[in-house]
Design a protein around this nucleic acid. Structure first.
Lengths: 168, 168
DNA sequence: CCGAACTTTCAAAAATAATTGAAAATATAA
DNA sequence: TTATATTTTCAATTATTTTTGAAAGTTCGG
């Protein structure tokens, strides 16, 4: 298989994967392009590679920077900005987990905490079904939260740090 | 907070969470309704609760059954079908993980395996950047795959089974 | 077999999300 | 400062996804 062909298949698949995870296709594809690029790329090069508009590249690259997956570089003597992706896959994964935890898990936990204080007779079957489920999810989310935090911070920790190296 | 109010807020939030994870809102909301219901519900009751069409309920309930999150019940003497959700949150989580692994991780791994056989000089920087990234992701996905499999099958295993009980 | 009760299907409509592209804003070199 | 290169914004357009609803299909008691 030729490099060009392989690259475009990779970009394609990464785009599909992203969209199944609520990340828009262009954002995922930009990430893919930068992941397999051997050096930082300009907006124009990215537009050319994916055949999308300047505005689209601009917005999605900024989103990728927000997630901490992509960094901007200023090359002396050049007017344009260049972008590159963090290629350490473990770090990529933890950054994504961190963002999703922050944006999705945390707000859900907050809602669940409020909802566990529903008023009414605990012997009422409807009330019981509701509070039981909410509390179960709450407990589960609490564990997930802790586990994620450990994983995300694992590298900074001497014990888990060396344990996690096995995954790299 | 009143039960009705709490319920609808829960359904709402679960729907938002779902849509951020590539699951359509109605599917997630149906799941939410059944998670907090004290008994199995009919299509008509679900339509009423969420104010959506019969076709919509039908299709999404079937999807939930595909995922193994919801089961159909036939009540003797009743012509209608009733539905209920598995309320064991740990099992819910592993079922979702299993489905997503099967539908998303597995195909990605397949693509990556094919792509790692790209032809060309390994000293070419473009080729190297590509194969390095692909192989890193491949290795990572392999670990993720194994970990997920262990977690999903944990209950069937005497050692992990009792370990996992801590999470419940 | 009939007909009522219920479920399934799917083309069309509606809702939502992503993308464009050109104008406005900003940055830089001279 | 001015001219020019580059980035950013966002209303309008386009693409995608979801939902509807009515017709077709199925099931079942009598």
């Amino acid at each position: 298989m030729k490099l060009t062909e392989a690259k475009s298949e990779f970009i394609q698949s990464w785009g599909v994967l992203g969209s199944q995870w609520g990340i828009n296709r262009t954002m995922a594809q930009l990430h893919a392009v930068l992941l397999v690029a051997n050096e930082a790329m300009s907006t124009d090069e990215l537009m050319e590679e994916l055949q999308v508009s300047r505005g689209n590249v601009n917005m999605n690259i900024r989103e990728l920077m927000d997630w901490g997956l992509v960094t901007k570089h200023i090359v002396p003597g050049e007017r344009k900005e260049f972008f590159s992706a963090d290629k350490d896959i473990w770090r990529v994964a933890t950054k994504i987990m961190y963002q999703r935890k922050k944006r999705e898990l945390d707000p859900m936990v907050e809602v669940l905490n409020r909802l566990s204080e529903v008023e009414g007779d605990k012997r009422d079957k409807d009330v019981k079904a509701f509070t039981d489920t909410v509390n179960d999810i709450r407990k589960f989310a609490g564990h997930a939260e802790k586990t994620l935090t450990v994983v995300i911070k694992a590298e900074e920790n001497w014990f888990w740090g060396s344990f996690m190296k096995m995954f790299k």
